[in-house]
């Protein structure tokens, strides 16, 4: 028979083990991307030309090169310079850094959606820059960004199989190793696809909900 149910069931625990790593890498990567993205967005707004230009260049450079190349660089080339990272750490940093450039655009849109009068009211109230960001700007900028952020989160999730290339044992790596030892590809690859699909479908429902709740794209 083409499809072997017993085999499929027997490899499921291994794949779910990998799925955990996939989700972990996605979540940690998204946290890195969210934090770094904010840093990029704020630095790009700096009135100091050197800072804003340099940040702009770095962001464009990272966005303009493939994630896979960046992952290779972090995992296989940085050790030559004395920085040896465990696979998952390297993967989280690589994905986080790459997506931070997209997140920074989302932040930019969100920040620009806050009316100029809000900055001025904060200044008239004599808030310092940190207080202005924390209490006035970000609370207004972030809600309209949430749907776009969730979209990128889903994109990151679907890009995790790239981490196979740097030996992270996420779901795709597990599937490959199962396949390589059993010489059966149909079940592991199909299951990987199904697991991704299930999570994506749920995520899309979640996204729709977020879009309704936060009013779609950044105002």
């Amino acid at each position: 028979m083409f499809w072997d149910w017993d085999f499929a069931i027997s490899i499921t625990p291994t794949l779910l083990q990998g799925l955990k790593i996939t989700i972990l890498a996605t979540v940690l990567g998204a946290i890195v991307a969210a934090v770094l993205g904010l840093v990029f967005a704020i630095l790009r707004r700096s009135t100091n030309r050197l800072i804003s230009r340099t940040t702009g260049f770095v962001v464009e450079f990272i966005r303009g090169t493939p994630l896979l190349v960046q992952l290779y660089f972090i995992f296989y080339i940085l050790p030559d310079f004395g920085l040896r990272l465990p696979p998952l750490t390297a993967g989280v940093i690589g994905m986080g850094l790459h997506y931070a450039t997209y997140f920074s655009e989302v932040y930019r849109g969100g920040i620009e959606s806050v009316a100029r009068g809000q900055w001025e009211a904060a200044r008239a109230g004599n808030l310092n820059p940190r207080q202005t960001w924390v209490h006035v700007i970000l609370p207004q900028a972030i809600p309209p960004m949430i749907p776009a952020m969730a979209n990128y989160l889903l994109a990151m999730f679907k890009e995790t199989p790239l981490l196979t290339a740097i030996t992270v044992m996420e779901m795709m790596s597990q599937a490959r190793s199962v396949a390589n030892t059993s010489y059966r590809y149909v079940e592991p690859m199909t299951l990987v696809g199904v697991f991704f699909l299930i999570i994506s479908i749920f995520s899309v429902f979640g996204l729709r909900w977020l879009e309704r709740k936060f009013g779609g794209r950044a105002r």
């Binding site: 009316a115 009068g117 809000q118 009211a121 008239a124 006035v136």
Partner: peptide, 12 residues
């Protein structure tokens, strides 16, 4: 202190 033409209240 200043009061603005368009209020500029913090909407959140």
């Amino acid at each position: 202190g200043m009061v603005f033409q368009h209020f500029n209240l913090f909407p959140h």
